[in-house]
Design a protein around this nucleic acid. Structure first.
Length: 855
DNA sequence: CCGTCAGGCATTTTT
DNA sequence: TGCCTGACGG
């Protein structure tokens, strides 16, 4: 049953050795053209085929190209057949990109690299073959001597040594002995939502106050353990105290519950595979023989579990090539260990380390600025990026009075760049990006860009498959396919509302538990026993009958699954729930249905999109399997747009022009990050700054604001300490547009550092007039943000009497406009898009607030 | 059982 | 400021 020759490429693994002929026939062409346009470092990394290799690839140094060439080289040199190469990435996006790149390479790899994918998808593939080896944890550990060296605890994780030899028999033997509750190959993969609901049940069942001890926290703790490859029995004693002393017990209970549900979470995919490899040398050996060469992308982001996964697989031949950049490790907070890459040479003896340092992306000024910042970090492997590109513009730095002013200025800069500025060719909006530290910073830009009619796209919003309506629909499909999917059933049994509340839910659960049956069956019993009555019972019976019918259809291969999906969404009343119920008259007149709320149209679109996606699959089951692992969507509409995203989301991307707003201490570096992780946290923030700067090809503009509204509160801040780390020679300090003075003098703040850039900003700003200071004092006393521009009138609600029709006005939020009309104490102001006469916003100001006009 | 309202609360995100 | 959760009343 565990035979590796079950499907796909493993067929071929049965052959003890591969004939050269087979290799020639199935491998790629013998051309070595792929080597020609590599630089010496890339070439070195590509040609080092024996033993472990660490490719230290700086930002924009062509690592993907080198990776592709290495794959081609492995095949051309007959080191491995395409399906014997294991290529691991972190995201589906990266995996997809590699596949596309590989297809486009000038050389020809005829066989697909079958084992190319994310840690999670590859693990799922492996785990499906050996699911039944994952069983009751307790039994697993009682079945052999727990004190022997086959248990790898955290301390040992880095000193793996020889493969542990368990005394629990081969997988075949274990199979025969049979041990309770095992995972089955058709397990479902839970997402965060399911996970949290499950944990909440467990917490409540354990009589713990879920307010003081929220499920989220427990999920985080368990995730942390799984990231470190710790099964419940391996969690160190020192951590017994977490989660009110019940963390470990709950973890155990959670794993048990997952087994009962025949489910795994994302962490389990890796954890289980590592567990199997550790306890079944026979299986590990087969995989070791099979994967002759291993390639890993973004190695700096691996966590302990992934590290073990790789070490176990590479343990035999050590033909592993890891690609990464220690300076771009920004996922420490989710378990990534920079240490993994830092200690690569130690882990893999005789490892060859190749540095890719020639940068093909950015100008020398940008590289120098980035280098200046990252230099402040300790314990780097060290790299010096260089480029042959022309010098270009210096990095630009500007301070603003507040966040809205910053957004306004950036909006204008974007428009200026779009039409060509400072002797530069006009840029497409697609080539500009605004990279923020925290997503709440995005709103200021969205507001502003909406106002001036500047097209933008936000990257990294709620993902398609995580949206409520999509998850609801998916839950319906899941129950239709497997009626014993309790979590899915629970999710939708009362969605749309069917009059089944807490009590009904409990009744169903109890019926299911006490009889050892699924919730769906339990529901039937609960109705039959009269526990659920009247309206609820009627609706529930109806639903159960529907499910029985849908299940039959789902099993029928002759029936279209797309049609079934449509029927389910329609007949379940789910789609109808987005519409207002029709009145009798409306039905009589045959009126169209009316959406209940503004969001409904978007939701319906999404559901249509979902049904469309179904068409690419043979059946619902195949689709569900796909979705549980691939949770991303790409809706890239054609129109040109400025991108707004977080720094994290920007990793791996590049743009000719990059804006880096919000460089204020506390926001960036994030206070929380520093509080929680101290110097380590600060260094990671600094790497984030490095990632941000190195996204830029030609123009990089850093900005900060003296005042920012955070959660509705005005807060003032000092410029980021990273600003002081920018090498002055490569930075141009800009004076805020229209402002005769700037932040420091105005806000009464001292520059952040003693030397360097911050001081120069202060000088550029140096506005000291008494009038300005008076104004500032007043606005500060009022707790208001008051950017002022001498040549324009600032709209203050109290200022109507000082306006005349035709006055040019300026407003923090809306920019420049004209007073169109005055009616009593109301001003009709029309705001125009910069450089155009077109009115983009109308604004009526009423003089509600008393107060003086500042001019 | 379902809708409304007040109060607590806010990084970064992939699979 | 705006979202999510839990308490409360119909």
């Amino acid at each position: 049953m565990n035979d590796l020759s079950e499907d796909d490429a493993f067929e071929a693994a049965a052959a003890p050795s591969l004939s050269q002929q087979a290799m020639a026939a199935r491998g790629g062409s013998r051309s070595t053209g792929y080597l020609d346009d590599l630089n010496p470092a890339q070439r070195e990394a590509v040609e080092a085929l024996d033993g472990p290799v660490l490719m230290l690839a700086g930002a924009g140094t062509g690592k993907t190209k080198a990776l592709m060439a290495r794959i081609a080289h492995l095949i051309a040199e007959k080191r491995a057949m395409p399906f014997q190469i294991l290529a691991v990435t972190f995201t589906n996006k990266a995996a997809r990109e590699m596949k596309v790149r590989l297809e486009k390479t000038p050389f020809d790899v005829r066989e697909p690299i079958r084992w190319m994918g994310t840690f999670h998808s590859l693990s799922a593939k492996i785990l499906r073959k050996h699911a039944e080896l994952i069983g009751n944890y307790q039994e697993l550990d009682l079945s052999h001597d727990n004190t022997s060296d086959d248990v790898i605890d955290e301390q040992d994780a880095y000193d793996l040594g020889p493969v542990p030899k368990p005394n629990i028999g081969t997988s075949a033997e274990r199979q025969k002995t049979g041990y309770g509750n095992n995972l089955k190959p058709n397990f479902t993969i839970l997402d965060t939502d399911d996970q949290l609901r499950l944990l909440k049940q467990l917490i409540v069942a354990a009589n713990i106050d879920d307010k003081r001890w929220p499920p989220r926290m427990l999920a985080h703790i368990i995730e942390g353990w799984k990231n470190r490859a710790l099964t419940p029995d391996k969690v160190p004693e020192s951590e017994a105290g977490v989660f009110d002393n019940k963390g470990i017990a709950l973890y155990k209970a959670y794993q048990q519950r997952l087994l009962t549900l025949n489910a795994v979470d994302f962490g389990d995919l890796l954890l289980h595979v590592v567990t199997i490899f550790q306890t079944h040398p026979d299986i590990l050996d087969k995989y070791r023989n099979w994967f002759r060469y291993i390639l890993v992308d973004e190695y700096q982001d691996t966590n302990v579990a992934q590290y073990l996964w790789l070490r176990l697989l590479a343990g035999g031949h050590k033909n592993i090539c890891c690609v990464g950049d220690d300076d771009q490790s920004i996922y420490g907070w989710r378990g990534a260990e920079v240490g993994n890459i830092l200690r690569f040479e130690k882990d893999f003896e005789g490892a060859k380390v190749v540095r890719l340092e020639q940068n093909y992306r950015s100008t020398p000024h940008i590289l120098a600025a980035a280098a200046g910042v990252i230099d402040a970090n300790k314990g780097r492997l060290g790299k010096t990026l260089w480029t042959e590109a022309e010098e270009g513009e210096k990095l630009r730095l500007i301070g603003h009075w507040d966040g809205e002013e910053e957004a306004r200025w950036i909006g204008e800069e974007v428009e200026a760049m779009q039409s060509g500025t400072r002797g530069m060719a006009p840029k497409s909006l697609d080539h500009m990006a605004i990279l923020v530290r925290a997503s709440h910073q995005m709103r200021a830009f969205e507001d502003r860009f909406l106002t001036i009619g500047l097209p933008y796209r936000v990257i990294g919003g709620p993902r398609f498959y995580e949206r409520m309506e999509i998850r609801d629909a998916m839950a319906y499909f899941r129950v239709a396919v497997s009626p014993d999917d309790d979590l899915a059933f629970e999710r939708i049994v009362n969605t749309p509302k069917r009059g089944l509340g807490d009590k009904a839910m409990k009744d169903m659960q109890t019926a299911a538990r006490t009889n050892g049956i699924s919730m769906l069956e339990g529901a039937r019993l609960a109705v039959a026993s009269g526990a659920i009555k009247a309206k609820g019972a009627k609706a529930l019976t109806g639903l159960l009958d529907e499910f029985a019918r849908w299940h039959r259809v789902a099993l029928d291969p002759n029936h279209s699954h797309v049609e079934l999906a449509e029927v389910i969404l329609e007949d379940s009343g789910y789609i109808r729930s987005f519409f207002r119920p029709q009145t009798e008259e409306e039905i009589e007149r045959g009126d169209a249905l009316v959406h209940k709320d503004v969001e409904a149209p978007g939701r319906l679109e999404n559901l249509k999109e979902l049904v469309k996606a179904l068409e690419q699959f043979e059946n619902l089951q195949g689709f569900l399997e796909h979705v549980s692992l691939i949770m991303d969507n790409e809706t890239d509409e054609g129109a040109e747009k400025v991108s707004i995203m977080t720094l994290h989301a920007a990793k791996g991307l590049e743009f000719p022009a990059v804006f880096l707003p919000g460089w204020e201490d506390g926001l960036f570096p994030s206070q929380r990050s520093m509080d929680e992780s101290g110097l380590k946290g600060l260094e990671e923030e600094r790497r984030l700054a490095y990632v941000g700067i190195t996204r830029a090809e030609e123009v990089c503009t850093i900005s900060f604001a003296a005042n920012r509204r955070v959660y509705g509160q005005w807060q003032s801040a000092l410029p980021s300490r990273f600003i002081d780390e920018l090498p002055a020679d490569h930075v141009e300090v800009l004076t805020p547009s229209g402002l005769q003075g700037g932040m420091y003098g105005a806000a009464g703040m001292a520059p952040a550092g003693e030397s360097g850039i911050a001081e120069r900003v202060a000088q550029a700003d140096g506005y000291n007039s008494p009038g300005w200071k008076r104004l500032q004092a007043r606005s500060q006393a009022r707790g208001m943000s008051q950017p002022r521009e001498a040549s324009n009138i600032v709209i203050d609600a109290s200022a109507t009497s000082s306006f005349l029709e035709g006055d040019r006005v300026f407003h923090t939020k809306f920019g420049y406009g004209t007073v169109f009309g005055i009616e009593g104490d109301k001003l009709d102001i029309r705001f125009d898009k910069a450089g155009e006469k077109k009115v983009v916003a109308k604004f009526v100001v009423a003089a509600e607030k008393a107060g003086d006009v500042p001019f």
